[in-house]
Amino acid sequence: MKKLKMQELIFTGVYTAIYFLLVSIVMVVLKVAVPVFDSLLLPAASALFSGIIYLLMLQKVPRFGGISVMGGVFGLLFLVTGHFPMSFVPSFVCAILADFLQYNWKINEKIRTTVTYIIFSFGLTGPLLPMWFMKNAYVDSLIRRGKDADYINYVFEPITQIGFIICVVSVIVCSIAGIYIGRKLLAKHFQTKR
């Protein structure tokens, strides 16, 4: 039993590292391709390509904990890398909720996994949500960090009502597409039924 738990911990670390690497690559590509809207599109673009990682995590760590750790790592990164103080909350909440539902919600497995992946994917909206819902506090935190008005205007350019709708809808759509692609890849390369 101890060996199994150690293996699960190792798999969690490996898939968390792969997820981090993939999100980092997506972030760099978006910064070059769409510099103003990169942060707005990051959660959706990451969800599109991370479905396989999520499914592999479920396959190798079939119990509560793995999803929470994977999302929680990003929460910690947001906390220690100078993001707005509340930016870490969605990462933790979405990851723990997805983890809990994945192993306690008694519905069709494919539907459950798709829904939990959508929830998990919203964890990357952590740095964005305070910009819509706590704008004044966010601006004050940027000023305290020495950012000028031009930088603040640049950061808030895509933070509109339409931008919010685009962010939410794109995360849902790309999560569904990402989990679909992930299932196809698993069926082809890992011979799994998930």
Rank of each mutant, 00 (worst) to 15 (best):
L128S: 02
Y103I: 03
P85W: 10
A137L: 01
D99A: 03
V93C: 09
D38I: 00
G82F: 01
I53N: 06
T125D: 08
Y54I: 09
F156W: 04
L40G: 04
S91K: 07
V155S: 04
P43V: 06
W132F: 15
L124M: 13
A47Q: 08
V73M: 07
V168N: 06
A45D: 12
G65I: 11
L76F: 13
K135M: 01
W105N: 05
V155P: 07
M57F: 10
F84C: 07
Y154F: 15
P43D: 06
V155C: 12
A33Y: 09
M134D: 04
S121R: 04
P90W: 12
G65P: 12
F156S: 03
N108L: 10
K135V: 01
V171K: 04
P130L: 13
P158D: 09
Y154V: 13
I162H: 00
C94N: 00
P158V: 09
V139K: 12
Q59R: 14
F74G: 11
G71I: 00
L40C: 05
L128C: 01
P43H: 12
P90G: 08
V69Y: 06
P130R: 12
L128H: 08
V115E: 09
Y154H: 13
I118E: 03
V93N: 11
T125G: 10
H83R: 03
L42Y: 06
F74K: 05
D150K: 12
G51T: 02
A149H: 15
V61T: 09
L101T: 02
Q102G: 06
K31W: 06
